[in-house]
Design a protein around this nucleic acid. Structure first.
Lengths: 135, 135
DNA sequence: ATATGTGCAAATCCTTTGCATAGAA
DNA sequence: TTCTATGCAAAGGATTTGCACATAT
């Protein structure tokens, strides 16, 4: 979901996040378009943009956003976390050579059969990566 | 695939892995049954079993096994790597509370529609986690 | 006022690496 | 021999934490 900068404070408040200057900048960066960024990428871009932010604040904020559902955290490889600005249900292609992630719209993929959750459990989400290699 | 201890040396050789004492112990531990273990769990179990092994050897061996297709490495959470003794195509349930992984047989889940790979690319694998929470 | 957020540096945790020794072919 | 594996400790990289200061309600 693309969010106009003007709506960000309300968007954060609605998610239970106090909209501080740093959080608004991080949200503006991520929510500008559907994308996948690492914490270090976000930190660099903020600083390139002239902002004074600490690494700790970036990590704190991303963790908070993910917990509040403002963004989604992906475990792609295990080496570092990726933050996805698209919180709608969707899946991913991953190019194994470059590591690049591409969104798959939910209508590009459908299940014929899914296992029922074990007794006393329910689905909390489905994470799916289709790894790609060059032919 | 469950492998009898007696067949392990040949199994490793066929995969292009020189069967040393440490590697045989690690393979015996993992391939005894379908299971998911972390590097630290494997290290502890080997030492509990009276073996003298280094952390470096365990990590080297697991990485080698995964590269040679003897086991499969999973990125479940991003916090640590999980090693799956089941190399057949299959998917996983994950209990979000305990972190526990459960295999889903390929016939428990099927796709109605899958996206074609982008031009010049081909499928290298599908990784799928169904996250579960307590009702 | 009082709670919450931020920055900095240090600490932590998982994993890798360098190098000397030991083992396999 | 000659190549490869192992062990140890140190290094590396991502993320978290402790604490003093700043900001929000």
């Amino acid at each position: 979901m693309i969010v106009l900068a003007a709506d960000l404070p309300e968007r954060l408040k609605n998610s239970g996040v106090l909209p501080t200057a740093q959080r608004l900048r991080i949200a503006a960066l991520l929510l500008a378009s559907p994308q996948h960024l690492t914490a270090e990428q976000i930190l660099s871009r903020l600083r390139e943009g002239g902002m004074r932010v600490s690494k700790a604040t970036v990590y704190n904020t991303l963790k908070l956003f993910a917990a509040k559902g403002v963004i989604r955290q992906l475990a792609v490889n295990g080496d570092r976390a990726w933050f996805d600005s698209n919180t709608e249900p969707h899946y991913h292609f991953q190019d194994l050579e470059t590591g690049a992630l591409t969104d798959l719209a939910p209508n590009e993929l459908s299940f014929d059969k899914l296992p029922p959750p074990p007794p006393g459990m329910e689905y909390a989400g489905v994470e799916l990566f289709i790894r790609l290699r060059r032919v």
